[in-house]
């Protein structure tokens, strides 16, 4: 015998200070934020409350470009394309969606961020990244 069940429990996840700044910037300014660690001398994407390398909290919030480089991607049929993208000005990559067809992409390709028309302070305010037609790369 099997008892069938579906667990649905509403949750509220605090985005934290850095996460909240990041989500607010996506919503209000169509801007991706990162954090620069002066100790490790690298800029992390997306914005962080602390440096994962040295643990330092003395990070400077920086505005990253809306252009990006495709670091890696995967095609999950029925679920779309997912990618690791490195926004301009960042030293690390972040996971997000790719907008387009599988054949449009290759590692190292130039991308640009696409933002939703209706934004609510959510990671999906950034809809994903599409090929940048203005770039020869």
């Amino acid at each position: 015998m099997m008892r069938e069940e579906s667990i649905r429990i509403p949750f509220r996840f605090a985005a934290g200070r850095a996460g909240s700044r990041m989500l607010a910037a996506l919503r209000d300014d169509k801007q991706i934020l990162g954090s620069h660690c002066p100790v490790c001398v690298r800029t992390l994407a997306p914005a962080r409350p602390f440096c994962p390398e040295c643990g330092g909290e003395n990070l400077k919030t920086v505005e990253l470009g809306s252009g990006a480089v495709l670091v890696s991607w995967t095609d999950m049929p029925g679920r779309g394309l997912f990618a690791l993208v490195r926004p301009d000005g960042a030293d690390t990559a972040m996971i997000h969606k790719l907008l387009g067809q599988s054949g449009d992409f290759h590692i190292g390709a130039r991308l640009r961020a696409v933002f939703a028309a209706e934004r609510r302070g959510h990671i999906a305010d950034l809809q994903g990244f599409e090929p940048d037609p203005g770039s020869a790369a």
């Binding site: 890696s72 995967t74 690791l84 990671i123």
Partner: peptide, 25 residues
């Protein structure tokens, strides 16, 4: 990560696909 990654629908298989693509490059 429940703020930046989970809402996108990323799971362990997605992560493995991203890794495999890098390795196959």
């Amino acid at each position: 990560d429940p703020i930046h990654v989970q809402p996108l629908g990323v799971d362990f298989l997605t992560c493995a696909g991203l890794q495999a693509r890098l390795l196959a490059h």
